[in-house]
Simulated scan of single mutants.
Amino acid sequence: MANRVLSLGLSVALLTALPLQAQDLNVYRGTQVSPQIERVYEHGLQYLVTSQEEDGSFPGNYGREPATAALAMLAMFAHGDDPNYGPYAKSIKRCVEYLLKSTDAGTGYIGNSMYNHGFSTLALAEAYGAVQDERIGPAVKKAIDLILTSQEKNRFKAWRYSPDSKDADSTVSGACFVALIAARNAGLRVPDNAIDDALKFYTDCQQPGTGSIGYTPGSGANGTATTAIGVAVYAYARKKDQPTFVKALSALKKSEDENGGGYPFYGEYYESQALFQSDVKAWEAWNDKRVQKLADSQNEDGSWDASLGAPLSTAFGLLSIALSYRYLPIYER
């Protein structure tokens, strides 16, 4: 088996000198990854590698969106292999190239929506200090500056589809918010007020009766997805003592919706993070069911199908169980 290394961004050097087997590294990190998880995960990664185009994009629905390359790259990072020399290094390099090629050199805007921009910025922030490419740092800084200036112009102090949007929703805002947290973890400056203003938006989206988080202020919850996003952002901000978080977590645990609120794979991507950051015991029970569901529904080529298209669904699917490995810096508790 190829050597496995831990990547922790700027704060910890890559352990390239340690020829650890997968199970040894999992013990080092204090995790237990079952053979079933490893089979499912590696099968999914192989699909992403073999379906990737030479330019770093992917086929099918949303395949050419930068967010797909970003999330596929995150799924590869999350497995713990060396991003510069490991078995997925070539695919990671292609993803980086595609994200940089999709970036406006002047504004730092990645793709054609803040969905794309948020997920792409997150991926580049996780790559910063881990992938040997001096272009990543400046690209992340510009991308973060755009997120911050977009927030400043927004009357809700959050985000929607365009950098100039005056309205906001909890899903686009989730992508942008987590990118800010990842950038801050990587050593970039993110003002406290940017975090606080975004959290207030989620409080405004909370339903007083149920505690669930709506798509926009005053709207109903969009299945479990928007509530899970609300829980995750408060957890990543280390604000788990706030009433908004406590009520949203309670609502999330009470939910019996197992299909992401009509957005399968996307909803579970956030639900895994929300539960892991909030209640590890609850996450363990949820994760066991999720792994089995993915194992039962995985296609022969390693992919999963949904309305988002196979590449994006597969990336989201893998990331929904990636906390079993716990290698991505953003996943640190």
Rank of each mutant, 00 (worst) to 15 (best):
N3R: 14
R4C: 09
L6I: 13
L6D: 12
L8T: 14
G9Q: 11
L10W: 12
L14K: 14
L15H: 14
L18F: 14
L20V: 10
A22Q: 10
D24H: 11
L25I: 11
L25W: 07
Y28K: 12
R29G: 05
T31Y: 05
S34H: 02
R39Q: 12
H43W: 09
L45P: 01
Q46G: 08
Y47E: 01
L48W: 05
Q52I: 01
Q52M: 02
G56V: 02
S57N: 01
A67C: 12
T68P: 05
L71G: 02
A72E: 04
M73G: 15
M76D: 00
G80T: 06
G86D: 00
Y88F: 14
K90T: 15
K90E: 11
S91C: 02
I92F: 05
Y98T: 02
K101Q: 12
T103R: 07
D104T: 08
D104C: 03
A105S: 09
Y109N: 03
Y109F: 15
Y109Q: 10
N112S: 14
N112V: 13
S113E: 05
N116V: 02
L122R: 03
V131C: 07
E134D: 13
G137R: 14
A139D: 00
V140M: 06
A143T: 09
D145G: 12
L146F: 06
L148C: 00
L148Y: 05
L148D: 04
Q151I: 05
Q151E: 09
R155C: 06
K157C: 08
A158K: 07
A158W: 10
W159P: 01
P163V: 06
D164H: 08
S165Y: 08
S170K: 03
S170Y: 00
V172D: 05
S173Q: 09
A175T: 15
C176V: 11
V178T: 15
A179D: 06
A179E: 03
L180E: 07
A182L: 00
A183I: 09
G187H: 03
R189N: 10
D192P: 00
N193H: 14
I195A: 02
D197I: 02
A198Q: 08
K200G: 03
K200I: 07
T203Y: 14
P208H: 10
G209P: 03
G209D: 14
I213K: 05
Y215R: 10
Y215L: 15
A221M: 12
A221E: 15
T224R: 04
A225L: 15
I229H: 08
V231W: 11
A232G: 00
Y234S: 10
K240D: 01
P243R: 08
P243E: 06
K247I: 03
L252Q: 12
L252F: 10
K253S: 00
K253Y: 06
N259A: 08
G260T: 00
G260M: 07
G262Y: 12
P264T: 00
E268P: 03
Y269K: 05
Y269H: 11
V280E: 13
A282Y: 09
A282L: 04
W286E: 03
D288W: 01
R290L: 09
R290N: 01
V291C: 07
V291D: 03
S297P: 00
S297K: 11
D301P: 04
G302D: 04
S307D: 14
S307C: 09
G309Y: 02
A310G: 03
L312C: 01
A315N: 08
I321G: 03
L323S: 09
R326E: 14
L328E: 06
I330S: 06
Y331N: 13
E332L: 10
R333Y: 06
R333A: 13
